[in-house]
Amino acid sequence: MKAIMKYRLAGLLACSLLVGTSGCSSMMSHTGASQGYYPGTRASAEMLTDDQSSWALKPLALVDLPFSAVLDTLLLPWDYMRADDSPSIDSPRARVIEAEKLAHTQEHLAEAAPLAINSPQP
Rank of each mutant, 00 (worst) to 15 (best):
G36C: 13
A103K: 02
A43T: 05
Y37L: 11
V63P: 12
P77D: 06
L74G: 07
Y38K: 01
H108N: 05
H108T: 09
D64P: 10
R95P: 06
Y37H: 04
P77V: 08
L74W: 11
M47H: 09
L62Q: 10
L75P: 00
A56Q: 01
P66S: 04
A61Q: 06
Y38V: 09
P92K: 14
T21L: 06
D64N: 13
R82C: 13
A103Q: 02
A33H: 08
D90T: 15
Q35V: 12
A116L: 10
K101A: 06
L75Y: 03
A94R: 10
V63F: 11
Y37P: 01
A99G: 07
K101R: 10
T41W: 02
L62P: 01
Q35S: 15
Q106E: 13
D84V: 12
Y80L: 06
S34F: 14
A116N: 02
T21N: 05
S91G: 15
A43I: 03
S86T: 07
W55C: 11
L71W: 03
S25E: 10
L62H: 07
P39R: 07
K101D: 01
L71Y: 05
P87L: 06
P92F: 12
E46G: 15
L76N: 08
S34L: 11
S86Q: 03
A116K: 14
T31Y: 00
S88N: 04
S34E: 07
A110E: 01
I89F: 05
V96F: 14
A83K: 12
I97L: 15
I89R: 12
W55V: 06
T41C: 02
T105Y: 09
H108P: 00
L62W: 08
E107F: 02
P87W: 08
M27C: 12
A103C: 01
A99P: 01
G23D: 08
R82G: 15
L102A: 15
E111Q: 12
D79L: 09
D85R: 03
A45N: 02
E111C: 13
G23A: 04
I117M: 11
S22W: 13
W78D: 10
D90Y: 15
P66V: 04
P59C: 06
N118F: 14
G23I: 04
S26A: 00
A99S: 15
A83G: 02
E46T: 14
S91A: 15
T31M: 12
G23W: 04
S53Q: 05
